[in-house]
Design a protein around this nucleic acid. Structure first.
Lengths: 123, 123
DNA sequence: ATTATTGTATTAGGTGCTTAATACAATAGG
DNA sequence: CCTATTGTATTAAGCACCTAATACAATAAT
């Protein structure tokens, strides 16, 4: 069972969750994903919601669907690497953009970031 | 007219938009806000949606409501400073958390951040 | 060939967000 | 006192997301 945020659609969060696992290697290229029904149970959501997330991931080229076998992580490692790079870049950009009105200097923001990472590390 | 993201409720985005303007001093302490109806027109949304955002901001202690005069930014500058610190901290934490699975070293993440800020600056 | 497992599609109902159209309440300002 | 302006409340409608229950389609495994 996973905790979801109320502010964003669950299927998007699931898509990102699995996408990140693929991009970090937790789900290796070619490995088999659990079935829609199993994932739904595991995540504590409706199968339809999982289905939407998986359609998303397939559209991104991160997974492949085999009619009755199930789904597997793509073998195309460059697609995975590209996805990872894009996602990280997007998150960094969004972060920078969200703090833009505060006019931080790069050095100061880096300091804040380092401090936060040290604290998180301690967790 | 402002551009809103589809993924989060508009009233939340408006609340943040005005909140940030207060925290950055764009809306100084004690200054008068536009009326609900004017803000709705200006932002291109329904008055009810603006109303929800403003109720939010009042709950945060950032604005005060005067029955028929309208609303003003709080005079309590420490409340504003506290809000700013909390918001920035939250955003940094969320950012760090969102990239946690990728296991970046602080130095590397700082480099990525700096690069992104330089590019953004050029805009 | 049969069966169980897989993905897929459909229908219905509930909830929250947003808009629209009103109406009411309170009071500053003339 | 009157009036315009302010905040506030209500009702109805549409839409997206999510759940639930069910059914169908395809095929690997037996």
């Amino acid at each position: 069972m996973v905790q979801f945020t109320a502010t964003r659609p669950i299927f998007v969060q699931i898509s990102e969750l699995i996408g990140v696992r693929i991009m970090t290697g937790a789900y290796p290229p070619g490995s088999k994903l659990a079935s829609v029904r199993d994932l739904a149970t595991e995540l504590g959501v409706n199968p339809n919601t999982v289905q939407r997330a998986l359609v998303d991931l397939e559209a991104q080229g991160l997974i492949t669907t085999h009619r009755t076998i199930g789904r597997t992580v793509t073998e195309d490692e460059s697609a995975i690497a590209d996805g990872r790079q894009l996602l990280v870049k997007q998150r960094v950009q969004d972060f920078v953009e969200s703090l833009r009105p505060f006019n931080y200097r790069p050095d100061d923001l880096c300091d804040i970031l380092r401090t936060c990472m040290k604290e998180e590390e301690a967790t």
